[in-house]
Amino acid sequence: MNNPLFSKGGGGMDEQALQQQVMIKQMQAVMESCPGKTAVSGVMGFALGGAFGLFMASMQYDTPMATNPNATAIQSLPLKEQLKKGFRDMGSRSFSSAKNFGKVGAIFAGTECVIEGYRAKNDLLNGTLAGCITGGALAAPAGPQATALGCAGFAAFSLAIDSYMRKTNYDD
């Protein structure tokens, strides 16, 4: 038998295959837990936000060098210094975007997981409530009106995306 899960001599699992099965079950348990989902969503959001931020920063034409009242002073710098300042600006914009995407991903995934665990259901309401909480939490520093608008906007967006993703027939 060429199955790697069985040892050469008998019908039982060899030690390495048994360790692999234990490791797989442990990884699955972490990925199904709310802290695991929150951490993975935060990290993946950070990576996606960084890539998105880098792309958007590279496409910006209104960089501080162009809108700066001392633009002539910057333009008079050597090319190496101009590039250094431009790349530093791109890096800071990219990092800012990465932090924001990571925060949104972690808050949303963690909240949705807790709500799903509490309600013991997997339906549209979980994502809608998680969207409301996430939008409200992100907008809370701007005041109660912004909190309400953030809740409503993010809940509507979450509902629309979740509804689309749950459709069985995408050809309609």
Rank of each mutant, 00 (worst) to 15 (best):
M44P: 01
N68H: 04
M23S: 15
M90L: 13
G53N: 05
A109Q: 03
A17C: 07
A146I: 08
G86L: 15
F108N: 02
L159D: 00
F95P: 01
F101E: 06
Q26S: 07
L125R: 08
N126D: 11
P78L: 08
I161N: 04
N68E: 01
D14C: 14
R166Q: 14
V43T: 08
Q26Y: 05
F154Q: 11
L5G: 13
D14W: 10
K80H: 11
E116M: 15
L18F: 08
M31I: 03
I74F: 15
Q19G: 07
D172L: 14
T168M: 09
M44S: 10
M65F: 11
A152E: 02
Y164E: 07
T128C: 13
K80V: 15
S58Q: 12
Y118K: 04
G12P: 08
M90G: 08
S58H: 13
T128W: 06
Q19W: 03
V40E: 00
A57S: 15
K8W: 07
M1V: 09
G50T: 05
C34M: 03
F157A: 13
L54F: 10
G117R: 09
M13A: 10
P141T: 04
S96N: 08
P141H: 05
K167N: 04
A146F: 11
T111H: 00
F95T: 04
R166G: 09
G105D: 05
G53A: 06
A51L: 15
L129M: 12
A120Y: 05
A66G: 01
D14G: 14
I74E: 01
M27A: 14
L54W: 08
D162F: 10
Q20L: 12
K99H: 00
A39Q: 02
L159K: 04
Q21M: 14
C132Y: 07
S163Q: 03
A17F: 11
N3W: 06
K121A: 06
T38P: 02
F55Y: 13
F46S: 00
G117E: 05
P4L: 08
G11Q: 08
V30A: 07
I24Q: 09
L77T: 04
Q60G: 12
T72N: 12
F6K: 14
Y164H: 12
G10L: 09
L159A: 13
G86Q: 15
A148Q: 01
N122Y: 09
